[in-house]
Write a protein that binds this DNA or RNA. Structure first.
Length: 681
RNA sequence: GCCGAGUUAGCUCAGCUGGUUAGAGCGCAUGAUUCAUAAUCAUGAGGUCCCCAGUUCAAUCCUGGGACUCGGUACCA
């Protein structure tokens, strides 16, 4: 491809997993397996390539976990960094370097990066009011602030989100905000922060992405366009926090680089850590092609924010492509770390040992390349048993077993070819071309399917030629047939090398060959006459129902554990005195009318008979009710909240709802009809 | 609500800039075969290409409207 020739080498980066938990199949399917396939493919072709990864260890959640567990933050990130790193090793993700953002190199480099931008006036500084803990003497990040959710009144909503009702919040909205860690009350205090003025790069980004990178995947391109169309705003790059890389400016004590600012720089520092002397050619030489493998949650950072940082810096290359995947679901439900709805990589290998290639295969075959996809254990079993075992493993086994049966395991000579032989060989060359053209445009799912076709060709070749019959009459012909079959097997070892490295190694061992190169693919003389193969072993084994059932049972148990049965009411709030309670005027009212608020997803507008002439109340429960069903019902509401406009409608109070275990809201109704306006006491 | 992506055979997905009988793998049915982990090979059945309207000689592909799924974003006193 003409495109390829512009570049001398390729730098492949993989999204940095956050060191606050183990990695699961979603991570593997979305980022690491495709990146690994691509990197292995380029290496096999003899190209210069680097696969870079590392753990993201800054940010707030790790600090919260540390305090909760009573250990240091370093303990937390050490633990998960090592676990994640080992998982990747176990699955054969061929990182040239897998480092971490707590490394010395990273700290220096990120710091220097910031300093350069700051010195050159690339940032703007702005003051804002943030919550401050006077006792602990620290500013709080959104995530570290907790308080009562203004919507559902859960006691422990985070400053950015309430996990109970799913609302996105800002810390200012929380009722009685407190420090998540110390529990102290918070006050507002002014603070100063650095911002990256993305808006100044708007035009440049529009040209660079919308015009110069039309070839990016449609989901990536579309999301970028969506962001650009709505107009970019400056984004804070610093935070008041004590965990992270200190802001390298005098007078910025107690401030660190915002985690998303330092994390992508990790790609650079990890490269530098690996190649202290030559790292720059991977980042600054325009003949280096950079690719970011990420999940769709990361598109904005990698397509807009990080490129802007690189552009502002001025010395670095920009990504040539950002092949982002969509999400992988698990048995019909979204993968969720907090709900433990996941297949964790380290657990998988404990429970189903030595089957990393099977998972790699299934995740690639069903990769969420163009849309969200579902992983099911039934599919996993079917793909293993019907494809890996029945097609690939079986063909290899047939070829080698027959060779041992007729020729003591030695590769027989090839004689005169039939038309059928030649046709088979021609198909081969086609497979190579196909796989290449698909890999070049990151279509791993189809590329792997094409590789599997080679095994199909092998099976068909054996079925068509029936060497076991000819063995009685025409041994010379059998020699040719088995030679070709073995050459196909050897080719399989090459074509599957990027996808299934462990199996390819095993196959090479059986065939008694060592190094392979991509250029050898399609070659029919990989095995010389008389070359001795080893005793055949099974390349893949069937997966029994019991294994699958155990996994499904495991998930079923988690589902149950997450279910309403095991619902625990949340902790009771601190005491309040009776007078405080008395200040809240709760009344019963009859719903006269109820309809959706236009242009709002969650809002319902109520006309309430409150016995005092009526009032309008807006409530965020549209997801849980048909408006008509509420008409005529009596509901409880707070009568003395100051009115507030919501989407243009003035809401005079708040309707009270009970929240079920799954977060669904149910309005509170008196057990028997009462006069509208009655007080609740 | 707005923005983005998607909706194609029972399942998972391909279908480039519109052009004769819409494809693949799995599953299913039938047949062949026994070297092989009851694996393989061949053949076949299966589709109102989400719905409606329009542009066109011609639309799965273009335009408009609608439905649903997933994500982002705004609203949930």
């Amino acid at each position: 491809m003409a495109e390829e020739k512009r570049f001398k080498r390729t730098l492949v980066t993989t999204a940095l997993p956050y060191a606050n938990g183990p990695v699961h199949i979603g991570h593997l399917a979305g980022v690491y397996v495709p990146a690994d396939i691509y990197a292995r493919y380029l290496r096999l072709k003899g190209e210069e390539v680097l696969l870079v990864g590392g753990s993201d260890e800054h940010g707030v959640p790790v600090t919260i976990r540390a305090r909760k567990e009573g250990c240091t933050v370093q303990d937390v990130v050490d633990r998960y960094h090592n676990l994640i790193k080992k998982s990747f090793e176990d699955f054969g993700i061929s990182f040239d370097v897998y480092s971490r953002t707590t490394s010395e190199t990273h700290s220096k480099l990120a710091s220097g990066f910031f300093k350069k931008l700051n010195d050159e006036g690339k940032f703007i500084q702005m003051e804002s009011e943030q919550y401050y803990d006077e006792e602990a003497k620290e500013f709080l990040t959104d995530r570290n602030i907790r308080g009562e959710c203004p919507r559902c009144h859960a006691a422990d909503a985070y400053g950015d989100q309430c996990e109970k009702c799913g609302s996105t919040l800002s810390p200012d909205e929380l009722i009685n905000p407190y420090n998540a860690v110390t529990g102290n009350k918070l006050v507002k205090r002014r603070t100063n922060h650095w911002y990256l003025p993305l808006d100044q790069y708007q035009e440049w980004l529009e040209r660079w992405i919308l015009e110069e990178h039309k070839e990016w995947r449609s989901n990536v391109y579309g999301q970028c366009k969506s962001w650009l169309d709505s107009g970019l705003k400056p984004r804070a790059v610093t935070r008041d926090l004590n965990w992270g890389i200190p802001v390298p400016v005098e007078g910025a004590e107690g401030k660190v680089l915002y985690v998303w600012f330092d994390a992508p720089i990790g790609y650079i520092s990890n490269t530098k850590e690996l190649l202290p002397d030559t790292w720059e050619k991977w980042w600054k030489d325009p003949e280096t092609r950079m690719l970011h493998f990420i999940g769709k949650d990361n598109i904005v950072f990698h397509c807009i924010v990080f490129p802007t940082m690189l552009k502002a810096h001025g010395e670095y290359n920009l990504p040539d492509n950002v092949p982002s995947n969509e999400f992988l679901n698990l048995e019909g439900d979204k993968i969720s770390t907090s709900r433990n709805w996941a297949v964790w990589l380290h657990e998988y290998l404990e429970q189903i040992p030595d089957k990393q290639d099977v998972l790699r295969y299934v995740l690639t075959a069903n990769a969420p390349e163009t849309k969200d996809n579902d992983f099911t254990w039934k599919d996993y079993q079917a793909r293993n048993n019907n494809e890996l075992v029945a097609i690939y493993g079986n063909f290899v086994n047939r070829a080698i077993v027959l060779t041992h049966k007729y020729f003591e395991g030695k590769v027989p000579a090839r004689h005169e070819l039939t038309d059928g032989d030649r046709a088979t060989l021609a198909e081969f060359a086609e497979v190579k071309k196909q796989v290449e053209s698909l890999l070049d445009v990151f279509r791993f799912r189809d590329a792997q399917k094409e590789a599997m076709n080679l095994a199909r060709i092998g099976n068909k070749y054996l079925a068509d030629n029936e060497p076991w019959k000819l063995a009685k009459s025409d041994m010379k012909r059998v020699e040719t047939i088995m030679n070709i079959s073995l050459q196909i097997a050897a080719n399989l070892a090459i074509v599957f090398e990027p996808f299934l490295p462990f199996s390819s190694a095993k196959l090479r061992m059986m065939l008694n060959i060592d190094k392979v190169e991509w250029s050898m693919l399609g070659n029919m003389d990989l095995l010389e006459d008389g070359h001795a193969t080893r005793t055949p072993e099974l390349l893949f084994e069937k997966i029994e129902d019991s294994v699958i059932e155990a996994q499904m049972q495991r998930l079923e148990n988690i589902r149950k554990a997450n279910d309403i049965d095991n619902y625990k009411p949340k902790a009771v709030l601190p005491d309040v005195d009776f007078e405080t309670f008395e200040k809240i005027d709760i009344r019963v009212g009859k719903v006269l009318d109820c309809q959706k608020v236009p242009k709002a997803d969650k809002l319902l507008m109520f006309k309430i008979d409150d016995g005092m002439g009526g009032r309008t109340i807006v409530s965020g429960i549209a997801k849980y009710y048909n408006p008509e069903d509420l008409i005529g019902k009596e509901v409880c509401f707070i009568a003395n909240f100051p009115p507030r406009k919501l989407k243009g409608v003035e809401s005079q109070g708040m309707i009270l709802s009970a929240m079920d275990a799954d977060g669904a809201l149910k309005v509170v109704t008196p057990s028997a009809e009462v006069k509208p306006g009655s007080s609740v006491c």
